[in-house]
Structures are given as C-alpha cells and as structure tokens.
Nucleic acid binder design. Structure first.
Lengths: 154, 154
DNA sequence: TATTGTTATACTCTATAACTATA
DNA sequence: TATAGTTATAGAGTATAACAATA
C-alpha cells in the first residue's frame, strides 16, 4: 500500500525535508485532507462513492425535501457545483428531484429507495473510515481537533 | 463575500442542521480544507498560483536538483500528478528540468530566475493567508492543531 | 429585482494504464 | 527486473457566466 519513500531512516520523518513549508498551517491542512481523501476512496471503492456524494445523500436523508441551494450551503458549495453532485446521484437513481409546492423556484430533494439502501452501506463503510482516522487520537484529542477545525470552516 | 445562508439565526450555527454528519471527523477535515482552499485562491488570485504549485516551487527552491519522484513523495503525489504540476510551472518558465548527471533516469528540477521572483511574491501572499488562518487560534492552539494534523498525514 | 435552477465552459487535482529509457 | 519519466485518458470538484422561470 505505502510507497517506499527512500532508503534512509529520514524518509519516515520528512518534516526536516519540508523546510519552511513545515511551519505553514495551511500546508498541514491540505496534506491531512489528502490522506483522509485517499483512505476514504479506498474504503468506498466497492460503493463507487465520493465524500461529497455521501455527504449529500446523508443530508438529504436527514432533511427530506431540502432544496439544492440549502444543500449547497450546508456543504459550502455554490449552485453549479451542487448541480454536478445532484446530477450524478440522480443519474444513478439514488436521489430524485421534485418541484417544491411552496416555492416553484426550488427543487425538493429526496432519496430513492436504492439511495437509502446505499446510504446505509455507506454509513457502515464510513464507520470503518472513521475508525482508521480516530485510531491515532484519544477521545479528548478528537474533540479538540474537531473544535479547532470548526473554527476554520464555520 | 459571505453568502447569506438563510433568514433565521440558526444559519450562523449550522451544526444542528448537519445532523449525524457533524460527528464525523473526516467531514470537518474536508470542510476546513475547503475553507482554506478558498481563502488561498482569493489571496493568490493576482499571482494565478495554486497551493500545489506554490508548495512545489517552495520545495524545489529548498532542494535544488530534486527529482520529480522525490518532489512527488514530499507532497504525496504520484508520478502522473507530479508531471502535471511540473509541466505547468515549466510552461510558465518558473521551473526547468535537467537530466540528472548521477542517474539519467531522473530529472533534476531547478527554479528559474522568474520562478524565484514569483516564489518571493508567493511567500508574501502566503504570509497574509497564514495570518487569516492563524487569527482564530492562540500560538499554543496552532501548535496543537499542526501536531494533530501531522498524525493524520505522516 | 432577487432567488433558484440550469447549461455551457474551463481549469486543477487525482489516478490508472501503457510505454520508453535507464539502472 | 525495478525505477523514473512520459503520454493518454478519465473522473471529480470547483468556479464563472449567461440564461430561464419564479417570487
């Protein structure tokens, strides 16, 4: 799985080699995201689902009839980006659009039965992914990490 | 700048609306990364540089003659991905390739003079970006955050 | 006028596969 | 055989701009 980096022992602690970049918080956020992304993709390969797709289905399940614009706001996506996510899920019949009765400008989003079944599988896969991620932290550290990350994105 | 999320006060604290997703560490990593990404892009718009491009130039400057494979390993990219980054920088004359004298399979990478000049500007822009990011933390919190993130990506 | 959705378009990142050159 | 680079190809996320329908 892991690519061999080099021959000497320093390879396992490349901090020294990163130089000034190592002091940049944003750099570590990006590397951590990349690591999480890769493990997610491995864990979800059998379902062929991305983080965004799972997050979107999860939220639609929790908020049946949510509009595209509201879904996008929760996941910090603009309208066009939200379209691509929803389109892909609709093409696979995991999600359907309905015109909102109260406001005809809006699309009300609902999971289909296959969508709900896949989401259940996705939640199981996500538990394994989360376990991989949390394995390196104590519960208190997890809480602290989430609190710090929330300050960045909220 | 900020998109209005909704009318009521809950909009500023969407944690409640995220439901079960809010307890997922990986979800917060992704949202934080997105927020960092967007601020980076705003801050670097005048230079037309991405995080990956800046990181690559920074590392080449710190390691003149580094091979593509080694650069990719430091930034956690495979060979093909590294190619696209290096190609783009080379097309803009920020970076040049040379065959390694010691191992003809390898390309030795060097910044050009324009590349060094742009990197200096990029470091200035990055200082502003980092200030934006660090503004919400104490120095001790920054240290803790970096330590926790490092455990994810190392 | 403002909001929501849609379409078209474009760019970056990421990765796999197959190929060449070199060790 | 293994490593480094290259090329072709593809999918996903992100965003801007312009447009239509509705409020």
């Amino acid at each position: 799985m892991d690519a061999p980096v080099s021959i000497d022992a320093k390879a396992d602690q490349p901090d020294d080699e990163l130089g000034g970049l190592n002091g940049i918080v944003g750099f570590h956020v990006r590397l951590a995201h990349g690591a999480v992304y890769r493990n997610f993709m491995e864990t979800f390969a059998h379902l062929d689902l991305t983080q965004k797709q799972v997050s979107a289905m999860w939220l639609v399940a929790d908020h049946p009839g949510i509009s595209q614009i509201a879904l996008g706001q929760l996941l910090r996506m603009d309208r066009a980006t939200t379209m691509t996510i929803v389109n892909r899920l609709q093409e696979r019949n995991y999600l359907r659009r309905e015109r909102s009765a109260s406001d005809a400008r809006k699309q009300a989003l609902y999971l289909t039965d296959p969508g709900m079944a896949v989401l259940a599988e996705a939640k199981t896969a996500n538990a394994a992914h989360e376990a991989w991620l949390r394995a390196r932290f104590t519960p208190a550290e997890v809480e602290k990490l989430v609190e710090l990350l929330t300050r960045i994105h909220e």
